[in-house]
Design a binder for these strands. Structure first.
Length: 576
DNA sequence: AGCCCCTACACGTGTGGATG
DNA sequence: CATCCACACGTGTAGGGGCT
């Protein structure tokens, strides 16, 4: 035990031994003992050294082992990572493949009702049904090709009557088909239509088909472009027109049309509303016309030669339909004949008022009361009645508050007319630039509303108006953010101007909550024009006009296009 | 996508098993 | 699940040029 201790303690034990050796015991034996001790100590040291070396070696070995293990772990880790990456990649590839498989379909998933059968189809159906009935027990129906081969000669040998009967049955199916098709269409949800249209669009792109999109019930077609209107109009003019030059090949026609289109000036290209101009054309946009009757039809009893009459945007209608009889000639069921750029029954094109003479259906010519000057009165025939008609229809009058949006050709008349009808008028404008004009038109300064910030304006004028009349076309009409909040219960927001884009979508809450009406209006009938003349005579309603001689028509058209009218140009050919 | 229109060609109808 | 095959045949439609 001791020795082991000594080994452990090393040098310390040896020192003790030496110290005891020096404590007075001398002689040979002692020396031998000392040598022995020394030897033992050396050996002990040697052993300890070896032991230490061994220990170091072991430690080294351990370290190597650990390093090895660490390296292995690293390798494993890398391998695992690689494997994971590979898996990831494979998954990604799979996903891609799936995406490819699930790529948007290019075939319709709709199942429309089967089209009506023709005579042959009905015959073959009957033939096969008969064959089935006459089959013996366990006998199988022959193959289709054999059936058809058997049926064909029989079909061809049918008598004329038998064939006629089959045709009649086919006709019956065909007559019933539209209803069946419509009933089926009515079952389609907007989502289904959307998906089907997406498929059709893809097919069009891939050149697989030409089918147009399905439309929701009542959904209008996209508005056509000016070019399309132009092409319609060119084709309506016939093959022998200056554009098509007798060309009958449809593809060549297209080229000629494109050529003619490119040759048009920008102004002419713009001039495609509401229909492209029928050329030759005589500055026909001038369409509210006042003149004297110089010739008169046999059936016209309410006019006399020499009488002063006016005509607005409409020069003709059938006079027989319910709309005409009700004094709503502008809604004639056979279509109204416009004063310009429109076709009479005989095919001639109406040319508006830029002329010495113009032809008007007697019933559409409205006598002008004495005392009304022609220039400030002419615009009442169109712009005036356009705003008068809805104001009257929706009850503008004493105690009512009427807001007019837009101070322009229509608006400046609407302000005067609404005042004359007894309503309190307000003008809504984007800026203060027309505040003085508005005052001259009878609007109190406090009633001039600058609707710059819809939210603020809506709050300030909440629940105020019985009528808001929109006379200026603008896209993104602030219906539910501005106009609806400003309306009083049972009020009406009326569109007299046509924005070129769709109305923005709006929440119907205010519309329903206050029982509002959102309405449109198209000019007016002759009786309304006559009423308006009386009103104008009584209250001095006058269009603000700038009169120019007809010789300045070109410049006037350009000025009008540039928005320089304040607020209407009048062309005059009165001999001074 | 919308318009125009002529024409050639594709579709759809009956059936049911085979094939993809 | 869709398509094909055999067949006749009337009907319905795609295609094709231009432009925005």
């Amino acid at each position: 035990m001791r020795g082991r201790c000594g080994v452990r303690r090393g040098g310390a034990l040896t020192t003790n031994l030496r110290a005891s050796a020096g404590s007075g015991q001398g002689g040979k034996a002692e020396k031998a003992q000392a040598r022995k001790d020394k030897e033992a100590a050396r050996k002990e040291r040697e052993r300890a050294r070896k032991e230490r070396e061994k220990e170091r070696a072991r430690k080294q070995k351990d370290k190597a082992q650990r390093d090895k293990e660490r390296a292995k772990a690293q390798r494993d880790k890398e391998r695992a990572k690689a494997a994971a990456d590979k898996l990831k990649e494979r998954k990604l590839k799979l996903k891609e493949k799936e995406a490819k498989v699930k790529k948007p379909r290019t075939t319709s998933s709709l199942h429309p009702p089967k089209a009506p059968q023709n005579a042959w189809g009905i015959f073959l159906g009957d033939f096969i049904a008969e064959k089935k009935r006459s089959l013996a027990e366990g006998e199988k129906l022959p193959s289709v090709s054999i059936l058809v081969k058997d049926a064909t000669p029989q079909y061809q040998a049918l008598s004329a009557e038998d064939k006629a009967a089959l045709h009649e049955r086919s006709e019956e199916q065909r007559r019933a088909y539209p209803d069946i098709l419509n009933a089926w269409k009515a079952t389609l949800t907007p989502d289904m239509i959307k998906e089907e249209n997406a498929v059709r669009a893809r097919r069009r792109k891939l050149g697989l088909s030409h089918k147009a999109n399905l439309r929701l019930e009542g959904e209008p077609k996209k508005p056509v472009t000016a070019y399309i209107l132009f092409s319609q109009e060119v084709r309506a003019r016939g093959v022998d027109s200056d554009v098509l030059q007798g060309e009958t090949d449809i593809l060549e026609q297209s080229k000629l049309m494109a050529q003619a289109w490119r040759a048009l000036s920008d102004e002419e290209k713009k001039n495609q509303w509401p229909a492209p101009t029928s050329y030759p054309c005589i500055a026909s946009t001038f369409h509210a016309v006042i003149g004297e009757v110089v010739r008169i039809g046999d059936n016209v009893k309410h006019l006399k030669l020499g009488q002063r009459v006016g005509v607005g945007a409409q020069a003709g209608s059938c006079l027989e339909c319910d709309a005409c009889k009700a004094g709503l000639q502008q809604h004639c069921e056979k279509g109204m004949v416009g004063t310009y750029n429109s076709k009479w029954e005989d095919g001639t094109v109406s040319q508006g008022g830029y002329a010495d003479h113009t032809r008007v259906k007697g019933a559409l010519a409205v006598p002008i009361p004495d005392g009304l000057e022609p220039e400030p009165t002419a615009p009442l025939l169109c712009a005036g009645v356009t705003v008068y008609s809805p104001l009257k229809r929706f009850g503008a009058g004493p105690g009512k508050k009427v807001g007019i949006v837009g101070i322009g050709g229509l608006g400046h008349l609407a302000l005067q007319i609404a005042s004359a009808m007894g309503a309190e008028t307000y003008a809504l404008s984007h800026s203060a630039s027309k505040i003085e004009d508005a005052e001259k038109l009878g609007v109190k300064r406090d009633n001039f509303i600058i609707a710059k910030d819809a939210k603020e304006t809506a709050k300030a004028w909440a629940n105020t108006f019985d009528i808001i009349l929109i006379t200026a076309p603008s896209d993104n009409l602030p219906l539910d953010s501005l106009y609806f909040p400003m309306m009083k219960r049972l009020g009406a927001v009326i569109l007299c101007a046509l924005p070129e884009s769709k109305l923005p979508p709006f929440f119907a809450h205010a519309l329903v909550g206050k029982s509002l009406t959102l309405a449109g209006s198209l000019i007016g009938g002759t009786s309304e024009i006559a009423e308006l003349f009386d009103l104008a005579a009584k209250h001095g309603i006058k269009a603000w006009t700038e009169t120019r001689p007809m010789s300045q028509t070109s410049q006037t058209l350009q000025d009008m296009e540039a928005g320089k009218a304040r607020y209407r140009f009048v062309l005059s050919n009165t001999k001074q």
